[in-house]
């Protein structure tokens, strides 16, 4: 398993840290889903580990679910192009922020705002969507076991690289 290629190739790894819109979902013991917007993302150098950052006050139910069953789905979408991918994992776990994570998140936020402005949409609203108090953030780290193309069109739903 460890010797297998990572689910994310270089292009997709670069894509998910390029200031895209990130939303994650989990589910409880009754399979009732919950969903929250993440404010940024980090990918490990070997592309096997992904960490998304969510504000805890917005994600209470989701954090409980992740703690309970470690299932997580994360969707990454570039608003201006609709290019979208979804990652799935069964090993999600909390991760502390690393020293340069806040700078990474700030840089991704600027790219996200710039992208949304291409759609003639006010930048301040885009910025508010991902605004957060740094102390509120937690990382959720995971190894994606599957990745799917979700860009609207005929290839939506196909595994990446298919």
């Amino acid at each position: 398993m460890d010797m297998a290629l990572p689910v994310l190739d270089e292009a997709h790894a670069a894509f998910i840290v390029s200031g895209v819109s990130i939303v994650v979902a989990a589910r409880d013991a009754h399979n009732a889903p919950t969903v929250v917007r993440a404010v940024g993302c980090r990918v490990s150098a070997d592309r096997r580990r992904v960490t998304v950052f969510v504000p805890r006050p917005q994600a209470a139910a989701l954090l409980d679910d992740v703690r309970a069953n470690r299932e997580l789905a994360a969707v990454f979408c570039q608003p201006s192009t609709h290019r979208t991918i979804q990652l799935k994992t069964r090993d999600a776990a909390f991760a502390a922020l690393e020293p340069d994570d806040l700078a990474l998140i700030a840089a991704e936020t600027d790219l996200f705002v710039a992208d949304i402005q291409k759609l003639e949409y006010p930048g301040e609203v885009a910025r508010a969507l991902v605004a957060h108090a740094p102390d509120d953030l937690t990382g959720i780290a995971f190894t994606p076991h599957a990745a799917f193309a979700q860009t609207p069109g005929p290839r939506a739903g196909e595994p990446l690289g298919a």
Binding site: V23, V24, A25, A26, R27, N31, A32, P33, T34, V35, R37, N69, E71, L72, A73, A74, V75, C77, P79, T84, Q86, K88, V125, L129, Q150
Partner: peptide, 18 residues
């Protein structure tokens, strides 16, 4: 602003989409 929708497969795998 597009909405996001979370659902869940019978095997407990969550899914999220725009």
């Amino acid at each position: 602003i597009p909405a996001q929708l979370a659902t869940c497969a019978p095997d407990g795998t969550p899914n999220v989409t725009y």
